[in-house]
Structures are given as structure tokens and as C-alpha cells.
Design a protein around this nucleic acid. Structure first.
Length: 558
RNA sequence: UGGCUCAUGGUGUAACUGGUAACACGUCUGGUUUUGGUCCAGAAGAGUCUAGGUUCGAGCCCUAGUGAGCCAACCA
């Protein structure tokens, strides 16, 4: 099926599988996908890959995509996670077809389990967990059968009913499928279908005393929803045989049988992607919550100021394959900058100020200048900024003398003040220790930005940002660095990933001064502090606190 | 009695029914620029894990190695 005339169609291998199924007779209207998170943590950028993949497929093939919560283990799950997951998916811009819960299928699952017992394909095992584990053997040698494997169907039926009604304590017994204790695939060695758990479920409350395992619930949930393609990560590849065994052995009418296929999960350099480990960071207080700006969570990235489109583009560029991978964090930064450059409002902010006195500027004078809000998009309009005799610039933008590669302010040389005038360094005032306290400059009155005068058009070696000392605001900025010091903190299981945490990953700057337009900033807008980077107001803070999303690309060489 | 999967520049993906390796990030030049940003132009960097085989021709097919990942929760 080729309905595109473009010679190149770089479809990923999953799209190819779907195309092939379509060619082999699968009805296009039967296509359906799903995104199946377990509500036991917040979504991270790795989930975003899966979300983009599944919802993206939905868009490509105009097929529905369900959001299904895999809520089979009430001990780890909560409504807080459900809400955060829904919020994150919406924020990314996707809409699910129906909101489903594995727990909605508990009754059906129970009936199918009874079926299995009736067909002598499941039994209640009363052994300890350790014994069951020992009997399962190791991959290289077969396991042995449980002594409870060959009970009568009637006995199993009544025991299973007793399990359901709460007649047994957790750990007393489990329901197991009767498959093959000698299978080279460990998952086929009589896997557990149900365990006794007397924990209240966030949706079914006290109704169930037994809960299905992932394997027993997942494929059947796909089937109930009539999902055509069930895409999951590589570690579930060995579960596929079981997935298919269940689907063949439950009583189903001639409906569509879902197909499980696997792709490689996303790994990002300098961070971790395991929900368990992220959870550990949160619980131990090493980060301040799931939405800490250093976290690779969707909520962390959102708070940090990464726009949703950047995440979408990132997932697109990352691609889908079956290879182990570690994506360079620089790719995410690139995608972030690419979007932010187009949509952010520019402001001038000085992070480490030093005063410049314009000696030939009238003491009592001040004026209003015009600055572009976004040079990439004129519709963003202009803003007014004030200028006077005393201004603040970055300390690092001045050197008494410097080589030719230093495109900033030096003594005797000219530099342009962004959106204002061309100034020339004349002298400095130092304290007893030789530290520069003030810089004295002269300005060229005719060089006003945008005036079109010959003087304003003069080429100077550099442009620096500044704020009017007499009309600026003190703000607070949080600057975050990578959370880990090494590229793959959890690559070696011998080492605790926490030992690689970058303890200097969070820095606050208080001596920061911004042009007075900072008073008009918005919580849902993105900003660029010129020459400094992209910044976003912290949604968690009521006062004017900014978070640096990412720096600008920097080619400085001196 | 082990099974399954993967292997292409530094990184990530392409290369459709075999035709002589492409795109993106990163790196490095140069140009433009009132952000050392953006933008534009260009360069370096792999001969496709190894060895055989099939073929006129192999990254792609076959065989055998090698390396890596996953599987032995009543987690997902």
C-alpha cells in the first residue's frame, strides 16, 4: 500500500508492521492503539516516546488510541498519579479515545480464570513464594512441577472461589496457569495469574481480595478493548509467548486478536529513566518532588520551561527501533532552543552587575527607547525600555584590556549597548584591593539604535545587554545543571546510581537585575534573557522567580 | 535446556523487491547579524562487528563466530 508519491518514506519498523497487516487483509477501521501506564509514578520523557509513538500512529492511520491505566497492583498506585498522567498527556497535546482501566475488567478476567481452571489449565498453588521460585528452576535447566499442580478441577474451582472471597491470607496461595515447567522461556513455567492482596484499590475499593498480575491482565485488556497493535518496550519481548498463549486459551469469540510488538525504550544521557529510581530520588529528598526541574519527568520539563512541541520534535528525531540507545542530552536542548527561539519574548537581564557611568550623559536626563520583543516574529511587537546616565552591565562583559577575540567592552574601544547607543570605555574606578567598582564611558549621542543615522549604522565589534540602574527590578533566578555527573548513572548495577548525583546541580542567583518590563511577565509565556538563555517563571513560586530552561548556544572563544 | 533480541560516523535513525552508505544532533570552517543567538554556506568523520558463502553485484540474503541487552517478583 503506497499512497504517497514521495520517493522516500522513512517509516519505522512498527509502521511497516502495520502496513503489512493492512496489506494482508486487516481492515483499516480495525486499527486501534493504546498507551498503558501504571499509575505508580509520574510520566517521564521515556513515556513521552511511547505516547508520541502510539498517539502518532493514531494520527497517521486515523485510528483511536485508548488511555488505559494498568492498575493491577493497588499497593503502589494512587489517584494522584492518575491525575498527573492525564494532565501530562493533555499538555503534550494528545487526546485519547477512551479512558480505560484494567480494573474495569476484573470481573471478566475472573470469569476467564474460571474458564481456564475448568479446562484444567490453571490451578491454585499453596506453596511459599520461595519454593515456587526454586521449583521454577533457572533458564538453563528445567523446573519441577508443583505438588498442587494435579488437583481436581472441582477442588481448584472451590479454592479459587475461596481466594476471591477472602478466605485466604496474602501469601497463602496463588492461581497459576498450567503450561510447561520445562519451557526454555521462564514466563511459561506456570506463571502466576492471581495473588491474594487485602489492599483497597483506588477504584474498586474493597471489592477484590485477589488481584491479577500484569501478564494475566494486559493482553486480555488489549483484547477487550480490541486493540489491534499493542506496542511495548523490549523487556516484554519474552512475555510475548505468554501473551499469545493466554489469548489462545481464553474463550473468545472470533474477534480481533491483538498483536504485541516491542521497541527499545528511550535512554537520555546524564539522567535515569527508571520509575523506581526516580521515585527513590523523590522519596529521599534528593530532588524536590516529581516536578523538580532537574527531573526527566514531563512535569519537571514543563516546569523547567521546555515547551511541549520541543518534546514532540525530540521524540520524532529520536526515532523508533529495537536497538539499545543513549540519546545525547544535546538533542533535547537543540529541540528546546529551536522552539523557544521562535516563541520567546526577549528581555534584558543582568546577572552579575557592574555599574557603567555615561560621563557625557546629562545627570537628570532619562529617555525611553524601543526594543523588539522577538526578532524572529515582528507580530510580537515592541516594548519600551528606559535609559539613563547610570546603567548596569555584566561584569564578564568588561575587561580593561583584551585581545582581538573579546567582542565586548574594553577601555578605548567601542561597543554597542543592545537597543541603545554605542559607548566607549574611558576609565575605571577601583577600590583599595584593585577591584573595579565603576566603569566610565562616553556615548555617541547620534548612534541611537534604530535611528538610521550613519552613526547608528557604524560597525562595532560587539553588542552587550544592560539595564537602567535607575529603573530596574531585582529578581531571583534558579539555574539548574545536569542531575548526574556521568552519562549513564545506572549502567552499572554494582554502583548505586545515587553516588553519581551532581551535588551542584541547583544554584540560585539573587543579585540579578532586569529591565522594568519584567513586571509584565506571564506564567504561561516563554522568555529569552538576551545573551543569557531561555527562562520561565516558576509556576510553583508566587514571587518573581525564574528558572533557566537552557542556555543559548555559545561559540565564545577567547 | 537454555531461549529471545540487537549490531551502520562521536550520538540517534535511514537506505523500500540486493545496485556501491543518507538525514538529524554534535564537532570544525567561513559569511550575515544591534543577541558570540538565529540564519546562510561549507568541511571533517563510517565503508556498515568478524570470517566464510550465495550473487555480475551484499549494510541488506545464508552459515558460523564475537560482542551487547532481556528473561529465573505473588512489579509493570
Amino acid at each position: 500500500m503506497t499512497n504517497s508519491d514521495s520517493p522516500i518514506n522513512n517509516e519505522n519498523f512498527l509502521e511497516l508492521i502495520i502496513r503489512k497487516d493492512l496489506d494482508n487483509g486487516l481492515n483499516k477501521n480495525d486499527l486501534k492503539f493504546r498507551f498503558p501506564p501504571e499509575p505508580n509514578g509520574y510520566l517521564h520523557i521515556g513515556h513521552a516516546k511511547s505516547i508520541c509513538l502510539n498517539f502518532g500512529l493514531g494520527k497517521i492511520f486515523s485510528a483511536p488510541v485508548n488511555l488505559r491505566f494498568d492498575d493491577t497492583n493497588p499497593e503502589n498506585e494512587s489517584i494522584e498519579y492518575i491525575n498527573s498522567i492525564k494532565k501530562d498527556i493533555k499538555w503534550l497535546g494528545f487526546e485519547w479515545n477512551s479512558e480505560c482501566y484494567a480494573s474495569d475488567y476484573f470481573d471478566q478476567l475472573y470469569k476467564w480464570a474460571i474458564n481456564l481452571i475448568e479446562k484444567d489449565k490453571a490451578y491454585v498453588d499453596f506453596q511459599d513464594q520461595e519454593i515456587i521460585s526454586d521449583q521454577r528452576g533457572v533458564p538453563t535447566s528445567p523446573g519441577v512441577n508443583s505438588p498442587y499442580r494435579d488437583k481436581s478441577i472441582e477442588e481448584n474451582l472451590s479454592q479459587f472461589q475461596k481466594m476471591k472471597s477472602g478466605g485466604y491470607k496474602p501469601g497463602d496461595c496463588v492461581l497459576r496457569a498450567k503450561i510447561d515447567m520445562a519451557s526454555p522461556n521462564m514466563h511459561m513455567r506456570d506463571p502466576v495469574l492471581y495473588r491474594v492482596m487485602k489492599t483497597a484499590h483506588h477504584r474498586t475499593n474493597e471489592k477484590w481480595k485477589i488481584y491479577p498480575t500484569y501478564d494475566w491482565a494486559h493482553g486480555q485488556s488489549d483484547f477487550i478493548e480490541q486493540v489491534s497493535h499493542s506496542f511495548c518496550t523490549l523487556e516484554f519481548e519474552v512475555h510475548r509467548e505468554l501473551y499469545e498463549w493466554f489469548l489462545q486459551n481464553i474463550d473468545t469469540k472470533k474477534s480481533l486478536i491483538p498483536k504485541q510488538r516491542e521497541f527499545a525504550r528511550l535512554n537520555l544521557s546524564y539522567t535515569i529513566m527508571s520509575k523506581r529510581k526516580l521515585s527513590e530520588l523523590v522519596d529521599s529528598g534528593l530532588v524536590k518532588g516529581w516536578d523538580d526541574p532537574r527531573m526527566p519527568t514531563i512535569s519537571g520539563l514543563r516546569r523547567r520551561g521546555v515547551p511541549p512541541q520541543a518534546i514532540l520534535n525530540f521524540c520524532e528525531k529520536v526515532g523508533v527501533s529495537k536497538r539499545e540507545n543513549i540519546i545525547d542530552y544535546a538533542l533535547l536542548d537543540f529541540c528546546t532552543r529551536e522552539i523557544l527561539n521562535k516563541i520567546s519574548y526577549r528581555l534584558m537581564v543582568v546577572f552579575d552587575p557592574i555599574e557603567v557611568v555615561i560621563t557625557n550623559y546629562d545627570e537628570n536626563q532619562s529617555e525611553t527607547l524601543l526594543a523588539e520583543n522577538n526578532p524572529e516574529d515582528k507580530t510580537y511587537g515592541n516594548r519600551k525600555i528606559s535609559f539613563s546616565k547610570n546603567i548596569l552591565i555584566e561584569k564578564e562583559d568588561f575587561k580593561e584590556e583584551a585581545n582581538r577575540k573579546f567582542f565586548r567592552l574594553t577601555l578605548g574601544k567601542e561597543v554597542r549597548l543592545k537597543n541603545a547607543y554605542i559607548i566607549k570605555g574611558e576609565s575605571v574606578e577601583k577600590d583599595d584591593k584593585g577591584n573595579i567598582k565603576k566603569i566610565f564611558c562616553t556615548y555617541d549621542q547620534k548612534s541611537k539604535s534604530g535611528s538610521g543615522s550613519p552613526e547608528s549604522l557604524r560597525k562595532v565589534k560587539g553588542t552587550i545587554h544592560w539595564v537602567d540602574k535607575n529603573n530596574c527590578e531585582n529578581i531571583s533566578v534558579d539555574v539548574y545543571d545536569k542531575l548526574f555527573k556521568i552519562e549513564s548513572p545506572d549502567e552499572n548495577p554494582e554502583n548505586d546510581f545515587k553516588t553519581f548525583i551532581n551535588e551542584n546541580s541547583s544554584n540560585n542567583f539573587e543579585n540579578v537585575y532586569a529591565e522594568s518590563n519584567i513586571n509584565n511577565v506571564d506564567y504561561d509565556k516563554y522568555y529569552q534573557f538576551q545573551r543569557k538563555g531561555y527562562f520561565k517563571l516558576d509556576n510553583k513560586s508566587s514571587d518573581k522567580k525564574f528558572i533557566r530552561t537552557v542556555t543559548l548556544r555559545d561559540n565564545t572563544k577567547f
